[in-house]
Each structure stands twice: as structure tokens, then as C-alpha cells.
Design a protein around this nucleic acid. Structure first.
Lengths: 102, 102
DNA sequence: ATATTATATTCACGATTTTCTATTTGTCAA
DNA sequence: TTGACAAATAGAAAATCGTGAATATAATAT
């Protein structure tokens, strides 16, 4: 589970934007077509496409093409991976320095 | 554990930047003085101050003033809160639509 | 083949973020 | 009180990000 700092930052960009958070909330109801997401968000189609790319790059969301349509859903594995990475980044395994200069 | 989308985005901004990720990794060794963090990062003092503000705003890091010095450490409670928020955002509790239009 | 529909890409622009220099504030020691 | 040091703030430059209009690509239907 070793990720570069750059990749880690990329992963959490998924949850750094209000619209992407809204998209995740919509996807919690299960897999949804892009066109349905579009109806529920006040953004244009290219903007949605842009956000879906960031979400898919983070691997927290996965896309599936079916004919003309793109279906998106939350990947429980991707979400678990993100949590693992977050834990690995915030677990404290030391006691620090007792003072600034000794 | 209900957070506005804006607040949620703010919280995860903490882990959306390479320098802040480096800072968290340093703090995993325990509480550290700002001046020590500064030695390990190739940024200026005001830039560090800026990043520490964002980290503290997310409540994943807490600061403590002692005389002239600021000591920072990871807040296990803050980190747990972030994980809870992330889970609440990515748990799937529906099965989606079977198709785009019915 | 042509038209239509769904999504992705390109480009440009404005807003936000990161970063720095300069300055200010706060704390301690002579 | 003055000087030295740590950290925060102000202001500005540069980079990144979010957005939409225009266009391209892909799939389906006629």
C-alpha cells in the first residue's frame, strides 16, 4: 500500500470539491448513468465529464460503458483503499521531541 | 456526524497537497516544533504557516503554543472523524437504476 | 450513409491556491 | 527597553483548478 505523495494527493482530490462530494452522495444510491447525474447537478456535461475523470482516477468510482451510456458507481474496494492510505498517513507511531532545541 | 459539503471538502484539503502529506508523515513521528518541520521541508516559513493553518482547520492536526514556539501533532480524534466522514460519503446503500431511461 | 444522441476532449477564462518577499506580532533574554 | 528570534499576516506573482462553449468521438437508429 505504498503510494507516492503525488498519487496520494490525487486520490483525495476526489473529496476536495463540493460537486464531486455531491456526485458521491448520488452514487451512494447505487450505479447511475451520467445523464442522470447531470440532471441532478447544475453543471454542464463537459464539467461532469471532468469531475468523473477525477473520481475514476482516484479509483473511488468506477465507470462502465454500455452502448452510448456510461454508468458510474462507487467502488467499495477503492473506498477501502483510500481509508487504508489515510490511516497509513495519520497513524502516530512516535512520541515526538520533548522540546524544540536541546 | 453531519457536515456540509463545503466543510467536507475543506477537511480533505488537508491531504490534497504534497507538502501537507509530507508534513503529516513527519508528524507521525510525534509532536514537532514548526522550526523542525521547516528544516525538513524545502519551503519558506510563511508557506509552512499557511499549510499548518489548513491542516489545523481540518482538525486532523492540532497546534499548541509554548513560549515562542508552536508545536504541532496529529489528532487521532480528528483523523478518526475524517475517516467517519469519508465512510459516510462512500458507503453504498442502494442498488442504482437498472438502466438509463425506462 | 446520414442523423441523432451520449460522452469525451480542447480551449480559454476566471477563481482559487501555492508560493514568495516584506512586514508585523508575540515572546524571551540582556 | 532594546535586541533577537519564532510565527503570523499582508500583498503580489505564478501555478493550478473549475467551468462552459465549441468541437470531436463513439454508438445507435433510420
Amino acid at each position: 500500500m505504498e503510494l507516492s505523495d503525488k498519487k496520494t494527493a490525487e486520490m483525495f482530490k476526489a473529496v476536495c470539491d463540493e460537486n464531486r462530494i455531491k456526485i458521491l452522495k448520488l452514487l451512494q444510491g447505487g450505479e447511475k448513468c451520467a445523464c442522470i447525474l447531470l440532471d441532478d447537478l447544475h453543471i454542464t456535461q463537459p464539467t461532469l465529464s471532468h469531475h468523473m475523470k477525477i473520481l475514476c482516477d482516484s479509483e473511488i468510482v468506477v465507470g462502465r460503458k454500455e452502448g452510448k451510456w456510461m454508468y458510474y458507481s462507487i467502488s467499495p474496494e477503492g473506498a477501502d483503499r483510500a481509508i487504508s492510505v489515510f490511516r497509513a498517513l495519520t497513524d502516530v507511531h512516535g512520541q515526538g521531541d520533548c522540546c524544540c532545541k536541546e
